[in-house]
Structure formats: structure tokens, C-alpha cells
Design a protein around this nucleic acid. Sequence first.
DNA 1: ATGGTATACTGCTGTATAGGAATATAGCAA
DNA 2: TTGCTATATTCCTATACAGCAGTATACCAT
Lengths: 116, 116
Amino acid sequence: MKRIVSPEVLELIAERFRVLADPARLQILNVLQGGEQTVTDLMRTTGFRQAKVSKHLQLLYNLGFVDRRKEGLHVYYRLASEDVFLLCDIVCRRLQVEADRRQEVLEELAGLGAEA
Amino acid sequence: MKRIVSPEVLELIAERFRVLADPARLQILNVLQGGEQTVTDLMRTTGFRQAKVSKHLQLLYNLGFVDRRKEGLHVYYRLASEDVFLLCDIVCRRLQVEADRRQEVLEELAGLGAEA
DNA sequence: ATGGTATACTGCTGTATAGGAATATAGCAA
DNA sequence: TTGCTATATTCCTATACAGCAGTATACCAT
């Protein structure tokens, strides 16, 4: 397939991963999977302070991970796509593989202990 | 599906994304897609200094993105799985969608200009 | 042993950014 | 207008980390 990727594209890709590289933002995205919420809702569902919620939402919005609509005083945020969860699923599968491998090592060690 | 994700798991997921959130590491991974390489090879193919290559490889190795084997003086690094490219493909698809959307907006603006 | 090469590590500096507190803006009500 | 609420932004501090230079370690050759 493609071999050479320009530095600009690498930076764009890295930028997207950087947004996902924060537990608070992942938590917000996870909550939004249950449906759209206002900033105040998110303060309640996540326990974060208002400034924190708002700032993370700006980032997520600017990079296209969430959409929003204004209704009176409130701003409703929602997931822009389910891609985030595709990404997380892949990562989680990896975590599972790692955990399994550690488990195997532990069992192997236990086996050696019994033999010795 | 699952709704509640523990802070620990969120941190683990974020940690994985953080490793991918760096253009230098993405470039190294991209090069490794062409086959295993030593640190010295990578210095040549990426243009990075030795310390830089080595440090990024440590990070990638510690989080399971690459494997390595030692042969004499050399250490050969290779991709641990193709998952990285699954992840990048999803991100790239998103970038394409964003680009298309910007393009549409531009064309719409051009159209308005012609009408006016 | 000595010397040379490949890789890893340490200490440092600058930069980016997360989070808190405070302030600013936007929209609604009276 | 004034006051109130929801959201955004600004300023600040602390932390994390990328990259550099230098040094240390590991391995091979002689």
C-alpha cells in the first residue's frame, strides 16, 4: 500500500490521537454514547467542573469528534460518529491480549514453582 | 453495550493513544510496516538521531506496539501487530471526511459568489 | 586485555497542556 | 435596564515529555 506519508499528514493523525489520549475526554465521549447532553448534564455525569468540561468539549468539537446544537441557554453536545468506539475497541482488544499474556506468564511461573 | 468504564481502564486506553500521538513514532511505525529494521536502519530511513530513535522504540516496545530481537550488536525491531494501521486507517478516513466537508463549503461559497 | 560499533540511558531545557480560579459572554426573565 | 443561569475564555501553576548532548553498556574483533 502507501509507504510514504508526509510530515503534515503524520501531524494531523497524531493530533487526532492526542485528543483521545486523555482519560477525561474518553470519559466524556463514553458518556455521550448514551445520548446528547448539555455541559451541565456532563458536569453531573462526569463529576468534572464546568471549565474542565467546557474546555475538553471545545477540543473534541474542534477536531470533529463531537457536534453541538444550541437551544436557548443550553448547548447540547453529541458524538459526531461512532469511530471513537471503533478505535477504543481495537485498543481494548490489545489490552485484553496483554492481560492474557501476563496471565500466561504468571501461570508459567506458578508451574515452575510447583516443579521446583 | 458497556456503559461504565473504570478510571483505570480509561487511563490504560489513553496511555495507548498517547503513544500514537506523536508524528515521530507514527513515522517509525510506518517505516516498520515495510519490514523489521535495526536502530541504525531507522536512523537512516527516518533521519532521526540515535537517542531519539531508541527512546521512541522503548516507548513503543513497552506498550506492546513493536517487538524486537537481538542479533549480535544489532537489535531488530518489527511491528507487533497491524492494529496500528487499523487505527490509522480509521483516523485517515475521518481526515478525508473533514477534507471533503471543507471542500463542499468552499464550493458552496463559490456558488454564492456566482449568484450574487 | 584494547578498540570500535550498536544501542540504551541520564541529565538538561524548552514547550505543551491539564486543571483550578476567576472573569467574560450569551441568552432569558422581570 | 437589572439580575440570573449556562457556557466560554483567560490567567496561572504544575506536570509531562520531546529532543539534544553526553555518557554508559553490550557485543564483537583483534
